[in-house]
Computed example of a mutant assay.
Amino acid sequence: MQPLAPRITLSVGYQSGTRAVVAFLMLGVVLTITCGGLCGVTARSVLAGLLVAAPVMLFYGLLMRSILRAGGWLEGSRLTVVNVATRTVDLRAARSVSLRATGSVKRTPLLTVTTDARTVKLILRSGEGVLLPPGELVALAAALDTARCPGAAETAGWLRAVAAGPRTML
Results as ranks from 00 to 15, higher is better:
Leu51Met: 15
Tyr14His: 07
Arg19Lys: 15
Val56Cys: 14
Glu136Lys: 02
Ile33Arg: 09
Val84Gln: 04
Thr115Phe: 00
Val113Cys: 11
Ala101Arg: 08
Phe24Val: 10
Gly165Phe: 14
Glu128Thr: 04
Pro134Gly: 02
Arg92Trp: 06
Ser11Lys: 11
Ala70Gln: 09
Leu140Thr: 09
Leu47Thr: 11
Leu58Gly: 07
Glu75Gly: 06
Thr119Ala: 10
Leu132Glu: 02
Ala93Thr: 13
Ala48Asn: 02
Ala5Phe: 10
Phe24Ile: 13
Ala5Glu: 05
Thr9Glu: 01
Ala117Ser: 15
Val97Arg: 01
Thr146Leu: 03
Arg78Cys: 14
Leu27Thr: 15
Leu74Gln: 01
Val89Trp: 04
Thr114Asn: 14
Leu99Phe: 03
Val82Leu: 01
Arg19Ser: 09
Ala139Ile: 00
Arg7Ile: 06
Gly135Ile: 03
Leu31Ala: 15
Leu140Pro: 11
Ala117Trp: 03
Thr34Glu: 11
Ser77Leu: 00
Val113Phe: 00
Arg87Gly: 02
Val84Gly: 04
Ala43Leu: 15
Arg167Ile: 13
Ala143Leu: 00
Leu10Ser: 00
Val81Leu: 05
Ser77Gly: 07
Ala141Cys: 07
Gly17Thr: 13
Val22Pro: 00
Ala23Glu: 01
Phe24Tyr: 11
Asn83Arg: 13
Ala53Ser: 15
Arg125Asp: 01
Trp73Arg: 09
Val162Glu: 14
Ser45Pro: 10
Gly103Val: 05
Val56Leu: 08
Ala143Gly: 10
